[in-house]
Structure formats: structure tokens, C-alpha cells
Design a protein around this nucleic acid. Sequence first.
DNA 1: ATACCTCGAGTTCG
DNA 2: CTCGAGGTAT
Length: 804
Amino acid sequence: MTESHHPSSPEIAARAQALRREIDEHNYRYHVLDAPTIPDAQYDRLLRELEAIEAAHPEWVTDDSPTRRVGARPVGGFATVRHELPMLSLANAFSDGEVHEFVRRIGERLAAADAASLTFSVEPKFDGLAVSLRYEQGQFVRGATRGDGESGEDVTANLRTIRAIPMRLRGDDVPDVLEVRGEVYMPRAAFESYNERARASGGKIKPMVNPRNGAAGSLRQLDPAITAQRPLAFYAYAVGVVAFAPGAGALPPAHSQLLAQLRQWGFPVSPLVAVARGGDGCLDYFRRIGAQRDQLPFDIDGVVYKLDDLGLQRELGFVGRTPRWAIAHKFPAQEQTTVVEDIVVNIGRSGAATPTARLAPVFVGGVTVSNATLHNADQVARLDVRIGDTVIVRRAGDVIPEVVAVVREQRPQAATPWVMPAHCPVCGAHIEREQGEVVARCIGGLSCAAQRVQAIFHFASRRAMDIDGLGEKIIEGLSDFGHVRSVADLYRLTLDDLLEMKRLADERKPAAAEAGSTTPEPAKGGKVATRWAENLIESIARSRRTTLARLLYSLGIAHVGESTAKALANWFGQLDLLRHAPWPILKAVPDVGDEVARAIDHFFAEAGNQRVLDALLAGGIVITDAHPPSPALAAALTVDNTLAAMAIARITPRRAAQIGEGCGSLAMAFAIDADVLRARGVPDDAIAALHAVAEHAPGRALIARCDAAIDAIVASAPASAGASAPLDGKTFVLTGTLAALSREAATAELEALGAKVAGSVSKKTDAVIAGDAAGSKLDKARALGIAIWDETQLLQLLSEHGRA
DNA sequence: ATACCTCGAGTTCG
DNA sequence: CTCGAGGTAT
């Protein structure tokens, strides 16, 4: 429209009509062909132009205009619609055998010579909401939910808001009446972003439990304006009533062709539909779709096989409301409902009290689940899970089951909110929760049997001391019968100790053995038990030779995991230097800050822990990789002893420089009078900080200990670094499965060359080494433009430097 | 102070 | 794997 020329009414009306056609066309290209030809912004411009015209000329608005997708809000509930042809329900198959049986039955009834050659139209079974859409003379007139199959709810206004549903059929040969059946669903991405916003809203918007509930809830909104904001989509998969004008046309003879026809009429049909031959073809399809399931942009709960020939379908007919010619082959459910029988508290090695839901066993995602963690009290409160509640349990792409939501309608009257118990169920000590922390902890420490067992279990674990065959049950036995109180006791165990423990443990639970347990437990005191005990003793003996990093990690010091243990071992080199280092010294190690340094200091300050360490050494532990402390550590510490003083007085580097300028060194600063310092230009707050330490006896003692520790470290450190490691400062990330090396071996090789192997990709990563079936890390590397190597390149790098 | 980036700890079933 | 929280760079 130009500014000078005022278009006549007929011109504008024509423009409006053209816009409607164009917008419909773009909807079709986007939703049905999945091949948009204009950017979203341009689409929006067209829509706005049409809206403007219609606002100026309401008399031209047509019922099927794309602007009319959001209609008026219905009063009260939804009207009930009776389906002229009932909407079917399908029989289910859960195994290959049931599918073969289904095909065999059809072959038999049709007296087909060769059931294996029957063809089926096969398609994914969407996890959404089935609806029926009615078109008269090509216009969308009504849509209803499936309901009970006989009648559903009239959700026409809401269905209009779904762009994937055409308001008008395309083409000329359209039937007088057409009912299309299909599934309204919510794409996963839309579900995720909706929940993202819900979380960001801080509770104002309630997150959806899953895409299916999201779709169902959205479609049942009384206000179509709300539905319009929910990103719903639609796939057509069948027809109901179809009536052509006399002589005007007919449906094709096969279901697969019917789907093609629906696509031509303007309906989205899943691109995954296919044709399969015989039971084996169907099962091939099932596996192919199953393999893609996690990658699909929408949820499916199985696949559907329909005998392709519509004539044969008619011949077979129905049993009740389910057709003989179709079956749904379901994947193992990823979500199930079950009942929370109890909520118990588990105590971890750090005393963390973790609530766990004891569930009535339920088959989810291929395994029977009877436990699910609830993480912490906050999570329990968020979900408001109570004993006796019916809950939805999921086992998503991950392995670990989780409680997704509570089904409020099925809550027993008597159920009360769950609260974290005040006392440890194992040792009776208080359970306390630090201000601002999420986890509650049993404060019993090692006097709590649970924490003792967990501590020993951790000590023996593969990445720690690697004692093969020392499992939780055995440790419990050894602990209960007094053979092992601390990890050091493991190295004093005798064959007799183990055999006696086994005997006592077996006596304690004879009932279980008599209850017809299938595992024969004979020869308890005999050869088998002896052999077991010998193996365990041998495993323990083997573990004596270890590395400093492993030993440190084994101790279970708070905040000291594998990585920190390695850093400490590399920098200090020797246990003796480390076990007496005050925390300001520990802070010199990269990635060790106040919190971690204090935790280590605190651990070694416990006389009991030092005794255990001595006992371990007395028990024959040998550190095979002891070496002098790193020159870098010595260098960091000798900068005028400033490090320790800075840490204690919380003096920042900038301030330390100011003080240093004023009096030569920080150490000197402690000896100089406040007035003199002030006269030399040292700021008052710096002086106050120095004094706080100097006048505080523990502070002075700490500085003295730091001095001693620094002397010891400097004395034993080599003068300077030799040739630096070839890959010093490089960071790698491993992903996927490597063929020649295990992931652990590859890590060890790279670290031997001085490289760091990180767990996740960031912009600091130098290269990502991708093995087979690499996952999200690879995508992230691509997004960040990080070098991606294959295994060959890794092996080449290693051999260049004389490894592997 | 703030915004990453890492690390640690807990977790289920066969 | 996922969350929480510690460490460090900005």
C-alpha cells in the first residue's frame, strides 16, 4: 500500500484473501512438509498485516481465517460430542512373541497362504492425546477428544489454535464430510522451554510433569488464549466418517495410501511411517524406531502395526471395540505409577542423610524399580511426597529412577507431610543441617556405624585402594563383629577372623537361608569359605603398595576427591610433609581454597586420624611414588613467607604489596610498631589485620607452624624445575568409547605427559578426544569450536612422546 | 560482587 | 548423570 493512493475496498478485500491463502500455504509448508520457505519473522509480518485489515473491516473476517485461531472462551465446561464412528482402542503387544501371534492370527483368519508376506502400515505411537477433527465441505467444523471412544469433549476452539491443524482442506477432490483422527502432542523442546520458564517464574507457573500431560492439560484449557500460547503439534493417522458427493471420489485401497492422501489434504503425517512385510518386518521397524526413540523430538510409547489393505481390514472386523487388524507394540514404559511404601533415611560416608522412597516394585524402562532417591528434604517438600502416596516414577535416558510427581487425587486421608528425623536411624546422634546448606548430616562421625562402614567401603573402592572382593555386606559383618573398627584394621585381618565373621553372620540369619533361597549356601565352614577368605586376604595384601594420591583419596577427607588428591600428591610428593602442613600452606596448591585447605587441616588435626595413618603405615602400606615436593610449591611458599601470613590475616595481594613497600617484608611487618607502619604509609585496616593475627596466640602459633612447614618443604624440594612435561598446561576431555585404550588408561597416559584430563568441555579445553558413540560433550565441543580428535590422533600424540 | 568452570558426593539395578 | 558448592577469573 502506497501512501498517496488509497486502495479501494475491493482491493483491500482481495489483499486480505490473498494473505489468508499465503499464510495457510506457509502453515502447510511448515507443519506438513516440514520445509518452511520464509523466516518466522516474515510469517509474523504477513499475519500482522492481515490482522490490521481485519481489524479495520470486521465484516470481512471469514470463519477460517488464520487470525481466527483464537476464539471466544466457552462458558462453563466443554460440550460432549458423540463420535459418529467410535474411536478405536488397540490391543497391546509387549513382546516379539505377541507380535508374531498377531500376524499368525490374521493369516489364519484370512486363510492367507503366506502370513509372512502380509503387508502392514507401520507408524510410531505418539504419546499425546487422541482427537477427532470433522471437516464439512472442506471446512474445519468441530474437534473432539477421544474420551471413552464413544463420546468426547468438544475442544474445537482450542484445536483451532494449533497451527498444524488445517482450517480448510487443500485440493479440489475433498469429501463432503471427513473425520480425521490423530494425536495432539507437545514436542519435547517446547515442553523443556515451557518448564524452563516455569522454573524461572519462581513457582508462579507450575511446571508440567511430562509432554503428554502438558498436551492434555493445554487442550483442556477453558480459555483458548492459553492453549494458543502452548506449543502443540499434531499428526494425523486415521480417518473416521468419510462421505464423498456422489461420484466425486473415493478413498484409496490401502492405509499407507490413505496417509499419503491425508498429507495431500493438508495434514501433517509422521515422516516415520513406513510399510513392513510380515511379523519380521514389523519387528525390524520396532527396533529401528526404538533405537531412535531418545533422539526423536517428541515422545512415543511404541509403534502401531496396521494391516495395510483396507479391504482385508473390513474382512477381519472387530472384537468389541478393538480391531483385529491392528496392534500397538509398546516399549517398556519409561514412566509408571506406584505407591510409596516408606521413606527411609540413608547415611552416607560424610554423614549425609538422604531420604529414599521405598516403592512397591514396578516395572519401568526394562527393570523393576523398588527404590528411588529423594535427594534431600527440600526435594521431598517440593514434591510433597508422603508415605502412602501414589507417585509417578520415571527412568529417563538416565539409569537412575526418579520420583517425578505425586498423584494428589490418590493420596490417603491419613498421609502427613514427611519430615527429616531429628536423630540418625543408625547411631541415634543428632541430624543437623547447617544454615544455607541443602544436606542434613548425622553428626555421629566415625562413631556412627553407617559412616564407618561407608568410610571403609570408600577406602576399599576401585579408584581408592582397590581391594577386590571387599563389599558392603562383608564390611558390615566385619564391623558388627568387632574385627574392623578403622581402615587400618583391614591390614591386621587374619584368615580366622574372616571365617569366624562368616560363621557368625550365617548364624544370625538362618531364617533367610531356610526360606528356600535358590543360591545354595553349602560348605559354609568348608573349602568354599576358606577359598573366599584366602582371596580376600590376598586382595588386601595387594593393596598395600599404592600411590600417595590413592591413599589420600582413600582417607575420605571432606572435599578431597580424586582430582584434589592428585594435585596434593603432585605438589607435596610425600605424606609426611602433607600430614603436618597447616592450612595456609595447603592453600598454595592450585584449586585448593580456604574451605578445602581447612577441611584437610582439620582432618589431620584429629589425633585419631593421625593414629589411623600411623597404623596403616605400620600395617605395611607402601607409597610407591613418593618424590620431593614440587619446586613450584617451594617457590610459592618462599615469597617472603607472605603466603601464610596473607592467608591468616586475610590480606589481599594488593594490600600485601602495600605492606611490603612500607616495611620490606610481611614477616617484618609483624615485628614493627603500628605507629611506625602508619608512618611508612601502610593503611590502617592492613595494620589492624596484622595485629589481629599477632595478638592472637593461635594465630602466632599457626604462623610458627607455617614457618616450620615451609622450611621442611623448601629444604627437600629440588632447586628448580627440570625440563617441563611435554603436554604441560594442556587440557583434554575424553568422550565415547575408545577401542585400543580404556578411558582410564588414556587418562593415565595423558597425565603422565603433564596434561590435564577434565570431565567436561569448556572453552579452556584444548581438544576433545571422541571415541565411539560420543555424546553431548562432542556437541558442546563443536559449539565451542574446540579441536576434535579421533583415537588415531590420540595414539599418534602418545607415541610421539614415547608412550603407549 | 559475579559468572563461569570444576570437582565432589550420592545414586539403581543386574 | 545431576546437583550443589567451592575456586578462580573478571
